[in-house]
């Protein structure tokens, strides 16, 4: 898998964790368990910053743009469709055995695509 794609997936997962820890219901449950959502969120933001330093600027800018527009910048391809906008992806893109070896985007919505299978 393209190292930048791996970093973008990790960035997306970090962003989800950071957003989750802003939710009152999740914070409440975590606090009940004795965890510290505030501190965890602060640390995750720091990890995000460190990860961002390892991602090419132009890719990061694209990720941020997509995330602010759609909420999810990186999505899996499911049954040859972009799981963000559900558009069928080009056959050549899906049948390429090295499809995860470079950054691919959905031709319709522009989201960054990865293949899990």
């Amino acid at each position: 898998m393209d190292p930048n794609l791996e970093r973008l997936i990790s960035l997306h997962d970090l962003d989800i964790m950071i957003a989750d820890l802003s939710r009152n219901d999740i914070r409440k449950e975590e606090e009940k368990l004795g965890l510290s959502p505030d501190e965890a969120q602060k640390e995750l933001r720091q990890l995000r910053k460190e990860l961002c330093n390892k991602i090419e600027k132009r890719l990061l800018a694209r990720y941020d743009r997509l995330a602010s527009r759609y909420g999810n910048a990186v999505v899996p391809a499911i049954q040859s469709r972009c799981s963000g906008c559900l558009t069928r992806l080009p056959t050549a893109m899906c049948s390429d055995p090295n499809r995860n070896e470079r950054i691919r985007t959905c031709p319709t919505c522009g989201r960054i695509i990865y293949w899990a299978d």
Partner: peptide, 18 residues
């Protein structure tokens, strides 16, 4: 990648709940 995600969460605060 999942290990990275779970370890990031642990690094941010160990999830020992009991």
């Amino acid at each position: 990648l999942l290990l990275t995600a779970l370890e990031s969460r642990e690094q941010a605060g160990a999830t020992v709940v009991h």
